[in-house]
Amino acid sequence: MLNIDSIKNGIVIDHIKAGLGIHIFKYLGLDKADYNVALIKNAESSKLGRKDIVKIENIIDLNYEVLGLIDSNITINIIEDEVITKKIKLTLPEEVVDIIKCKNPRCVTSIEPNIKHIFYLVDSERGEYRCLYCDEAYSNMEV
């Protein structure tokens, strides 16, 4: 396996489904980072076969809700003084507020000003969400 230096203080986002790492990398704006970052693609994984990993030599704010939507199986390791001090397992959030807008042109969200766009989880296995107002179905990837 490709050797990437271990992190002193920072974050390792592990167990990313192969191919999704780049989305997380871009979502976190790491392509513009002025600190050490690494995107490892297609690393070997006993659990997943292949996986992506993102390493960040910095403690940054993460929105677990959005990361959970991109891939609910990822693990976030917080590293301090080269030791994992916190391991966070993500799940699909029960409710997603104001991350995307409902696309249904018949939905009340298309006319009401300053409305919160709320989606609720209906099926965690299939990652299915519905708009709180009009029940339009979305997959977690669309969200």
């Binding site: 018949r106 939905c107 009340v108 969200t109 009401e112 300053n114 409305i115 709180l132 107002y133």
Partner: peptide, 29 residues
């Protein structure tokens, strides 16, 4: 006027409201 403002105002006057609206989810809102 928004649906929110309409219902908040009507809530001051009436005891119960019935709403029909062409947009889906308007009564939920």
């Amino acid at each position: 006027e928004s649906i929110r403002d309409t219902i908040r105002t009507i809530s001051c006057y009436a005891d119960i409201a019935v709403m029909r609206h062409p947009k889906e989810g308007a009564p939920k809102l």
